[in-house]
Amino acid sequence: MTVALLAATATAALAAGCAQSHPSDDGRGRTKPPSPVPTSPTPTPTRSATSHGHVLAVKIDNAPDARPHTGLRQADVVYVEQVEGGLSRLMAVYASTLPKAVGPVRSARESDLELLRQYDHPTLAFSGAQHKLLPLIARAPLKAEPPEKASDAYFRGSDRAAPHNLYLRPARLMRTAPGPGALTNGFRYGPAPDGGRPDTSLTVRYPAARFTFTWSASRHGWLVAMDGRPSRTTDGQPVAPATVVVQYVTMRKSRFHDFLGNNTPFTDTVGSGRAKVLRDGKAYDVDWKRAKATDGTDFTTNDGRPVDFAKGQVWVVFAKAS
């Protein structure tokens, strides 16, 4: 499946589509429509291994109608979080590579602001937010880039219905990828730690979502399945991160609700707790610690030794601590 751009003759429909927000998405009705999107060729992806800049974080829809995703395999880090109704959303963080397109893009949550504090003034691309959350986003130490602010960076795909068809052109927000040095999240990469136990499959369940990670020696990664179906991106390739972290955290009620009255859970990513690291066909029981929001997250063995991740993409799945 490919993501097709709407033709220039359909720009009026495009603007209307960008203006509409899904009620269960942000609870604020409609957003300001962006200007019509040019149909000029998209710039090619760029790479930078040495420059230090600011990462791009993109909120990604994960409803069944939003799959397959676009540009997800190119992310350095993918966070999985629980949202209203026990569903899930993704946040993809890009530093090494900027893909041509990413999406579908959806709305921000309060938890995102705390999570992103460990990155140095990141750019956050999102479709919108509940109106009571907008002042918090405006005050957060990040560069907010929703469609009403950067309309030329977004487009509507013609292969699925709104709201699951809003996509981002990352190169319209930043000229080059900032490079791995922008990943100020405290993650370490290197040889596998001692110990661990052979483990080829693990499932994390939310009330209305399920993620299974299965080790693939041929791809040297963990094949992702969502709600029982293998995850592939729109280029036809499977999603197979080199490292999966299941981070057990406190999930509490926030002051925000969707239009149905479902509370938006707040995921506490500052503090400490248990985690499970999957890499190289093994599972490691570890501890995590993040003393304050501006700190990165440390993962250590029971005796305090740092845990290195395998080189490649990392998925961090936030699971409710028991």
Rank of each mutant, 00 (worst) to 15 (best):
V78L: 13
V80P: 02
E81H: 10
E81T: 10
E84C: 03
S88N: 10
L90I: 02
L90S: 00
A92K: 02
V93L: 02
A95M: 13
S96V: 08
S96D: 15
T97G: 03
A101G: 07
G103M: 12
G103N: 06
R106I: 07
S107V: 11
S107A: 15
S107C: 14
A108F: 05
R109Y: 04
E110V: 11
S111F: 09
D112Q: 01
D112M: 07
L115P: 03
L116G: 00
L116P: 00
L116M: 09
R117P: 05
R117Y: 05
Q118Y: 05
D120H: 10
D120S: 13
H121C: 00
H121Y: 02
P122V: 05
P122C: 07
P122E: 06
F126H: 13
S127K: 08
S127T: 11
H131A: 07
K132E: 15
K132H: 14
L133I: 04
P135H: 04
L136I: 05
L136R: 14
A138N: 12
A140D: 00
P141Y: 00
P141N: 06
K143W: 01
K143P: 00
A144M: 09
A144H: 02
A144F: 01
P147I: 12
P147A: 10
P147C: 14
E148Y: 14
E148I: 05
K149E: 12
S151R: 00
S151N: 01
A153D: 04
Y154E: 09
Y154G: 10
Y154M: 08
Y154L: 11
Y154K: 13
R160A: 09
A161I: 06
H164D: 11
H164L: 10
H164N: 13
N165I: 04
L166T: 13
L166P: 01
L166V: 14
R169L: 14
P170F: 04
A171P: 00
R172M: 14
R172A: 15
M174I: 12
R175F: 00
T176H: 14
T176C: 01
T176S: 12
T176Q: 12
A177Q: 08
A177H: 09
A177F: 03
G179D: 09
G181R: 15
G181P: 12
G181D: 11
A182F: 06
L183G: 07
T184D: 11
F187Q: 13
R188N: 09
R188V: 05
Y189V: 13
G190T: 10
G190P: 09
P191Y: 07
P191E: 05
A192G: 08
P193L: 08
D194K: 15
G196H: 07
S201P: 01
L202N: 03
T203D: 05
R205S: 14
R205W: 05
Y206M: 06
P207F: 02
P207E: 12
A208F: 07
R210A: 13
R210L: 04
F211C: 06
T212K: 13
T212W: 04
T212Y: 02
F213T: 07
T214E: 15
T214V: 14
S216L: 11
S216K: 11
S218W: 00
S218E: 15
